[in-house]
Computed example of a mutant assay.
Amino acid sequence: MAKMQLVSFKGCPWVQRVAIVLREKKIDFEFIHIEADNRPDWFRAISPHNKVPVLRLDDHRALFESGAIAEYLDETAAPRLHPGDPVERAVHRAWIEYMPSFVDITSAHAYVDSEAEFDKAAALVPAAFEKLERALERQSGGPLFNGARYSLVDAAYAPFLQRHLFLERIRKIGHIDKFPRVKAWAEALVARPSTHSFPPAEFEAMYRDMVKRRNKWISQFVDGPRAAAE
């Protein structure tokens, strides 16, 4: 195998997290896209949890779980994206650990079946943004989590902040506007080339189509105003 292969469901944010790290480190790789509803036997053989991402290092070795893959890449390829100081590194890892909870809170309104449920889920979003706003204030001046220096925290949150901005263009809840550091961080990540596995307008259109096909309450608004990136 000439280069690393990143096995993916097209558009998966957890795969995107790994792709970002690979691009930040300028590691040559290729995508292998498979269908979630038709996972081939060779994939099941190298993915113990039957999930993506899987990073095939060579013909004999493969890694799974996005966090573990990101840590491996950071240990084996320059530039290091974790801080050198052990305390700072532990703080960064702690914020990465919080990321799945953040995602659950800030995206829950996209998965409900009624307006009442949507409003209830959206009302919980500010608490998650407030935590990150305080973290960004403690770190440094931005625009990234660690100031001007890109980190694994940025790579972890970038796919999900990007999707939150997409959701805002489908059905705006406006909470991110109340947290200027978080909003500036999200916009800085979206503007960074490493965030993108597809052209931005193409990917936003893909995401909007996925939201529409999910057939939740928010889906009815997908065909409203065109995405700002288009």
Rank of each mutant, 00 (worst) to 15 (best):
residue 16 Q to R: 15
residue 3 K to A: 09
residue 206 M to R: 13
residue 167 L to D: 09
residue 217 W to D: 07
residue 76 T to H: 12
residue 77 A to N: 15
residue 160 F to L: 10
residue 44 R to N: 02
residue 130 E to Q: 15
residue 208 R to G: 11
residue 32 I to P: 02
residue 86 P to E: 11
residue 100 P to V: 08
residue 170 I to M: 11
residue 44 R to E: 00
residue 8 S to E: 04
residue 184 A to Y: 07
residue 55 L to H: 01
residue 34 I to Y: 00
residue 210 M to Q: 14
residue 158 A to S: 09
residue 199 P to S: 12
residue 227 A to S: 14
residue 39 R to H: 03
residue 72 Y to S: 08
residue 112 V to S: 04
residue 109 H to R: 15
residue 120 K to Q: 12
residue 114 S to K: 02
residue 99 M to P: 03
residue 24 E to N: 05
residue 16 Q to A: 12
residue 34 I to W: 02
residue 22 L to H: 02
residue 42 W to C: 00
residue 115 E to K: 14
residue 142 G to Y: 02
residue 107 S to F: 06
residue 168 E to H: 12
residue 21 V to R: 10
residue 82 H to C: 05
residue 97 E to T: 11
residue 18 V to L: 03
residue 198 F to N: 12
residue 169 R to L: 08
residue 70 A to K: 05
residue 75 E to L: 03
residue 230 E to M: 11
residue 125 V to S: 08
residue 41 D to R: 05
residue 105 I to G: 08
residue 74 D to T: 02
residue 125 V to H: 10
residue 216 K to E: 02
residue 70 A to Y: 01
residue 199 P to G: 11
residue 227 A to T: 12
residue 71 E to W: 06
residue 129 F to C: 06
residue 116 A to N: 03
residue 68 A to I: 07
residue 164 H to Y: 15
residue 13 P to Q: 04
residue 157 Y to F: 13
residue 88 E to F: 06
residue 112 V to T: 06
residue 214 R to C: 05
residue 193 P to S: 13
residue 80 R to D: 07
residue 150 Y to K: 04
residue 89 R to F: 05
residue 117 E to G: 05
residue 25 K to W: 01
residue 63 L to Q: 01
residue 19 A to M: 06
residue 76 T to W: 04
residue 149 R to N: 14
residue 172 K to T: 14
residue 217 W to Y: 15
residue 170 I to P: 04
residue 24 E to V: 02
residue 113 D to K: 05
residue 101 S to K: 09
residue 87 V to W: 11
residue 187 E to A: 09
residue 139 Q to T: 14
residue 23 R to D: 06
residue 146 N to S: 14
residue 76 T to E: 04
residue 230 E to W: 12
residue 167 L to E: 09
residue 61 R to Q: 00
residue 130 E to I: 01
residue 54 V to Q: 00
residue 101 S to Y: 07
residue 57 L to Y: 03
residue 18 V to E: 04
